[in-house]
Design a protein around this nucleic acid. Structure first.
Length: 165
DNA sequence: GCCAACGTTGGC
DNA sequence: GCCAACGTTGGC
């Protein structure tokens, strides 16, 4: 009986364990997150971003906290995913800016995760310097016109960026 | 299912 | 404040 030929191990893409989440500092800054310790990341109303939270994120994943729509856009701190995804309560609240009349408690449309403060960076790693790095050219963040507020970060990108600090 | 109109994001 | 890029909506 001939020995079964051993099959090559299937190439499995490593699960993304790092993310980048944008926030406008005028609305909710890294200092706000530090003061609160953790925060339900409500108000995401983009399907792709929702799917990253719902399907991709696991408790303990690393998060770059990014300040957008401000004088110096860039990564300002580290956070981590602190809960599994669960329905975003603001979608049910008619008084909320994030109210969605198409969502119901039986059929929620939007989810969130809790995000916990880890630490502030020693300095802001600016969008400008990230854009200048050839090794980050594939990152969604630096692609023209990107508007995703929640996006995956590869392990290599995570390390490259942290090494800039 | 197409696509124009519209609203939003976010860098500058 | 401007405006390019993008996602969503709705008429057809």
């Amino acid at each position: 009986m001939s020995a079964a030929r051993s099959k090559p191990a299937p190439i499995k893409a490593a699960r993304i364990k790092h993310w980048l989440m944008k926030s406008e500092p005028d609305t909710f800054s890294i200092d706000d997150l530090q003061a609160r310790g953790s925060e339900p990341w409500d108000g995401v109303r983009n399907y792709q971003a929702r799917n990253f939270m719902r399907d991709g994120m696991r408790v303990g994943d690393g998060v770059f906290f990014y300040h957008s729509n401000c004088a110096e856009p860039g990564i300002v701190g580290l956070a981590e995913v602190a809960s599994e995804a669960y329905p975003d309560p603001s979608q049910f609240d008619p008084k909320s800016d994030y109210f969605d009349p198409g969502a119901s408690r039986v059929n929620p449309r939007w989810v969130l995760v809790d995000v916990a403060f880890v630490r502030k960076l020693k300095r802001t790693i600016t969008l400008k310097e990230l854009q200048a790095l050839p090794s980050l050219a594939e990152m969604a963040l630096v692609r023209k016109g990107n508007r995703l507020s929640v996006m995956p970060v590869t392990a290599a990108e995570w390390k490259t960026i942290l090494d800039l600090e």
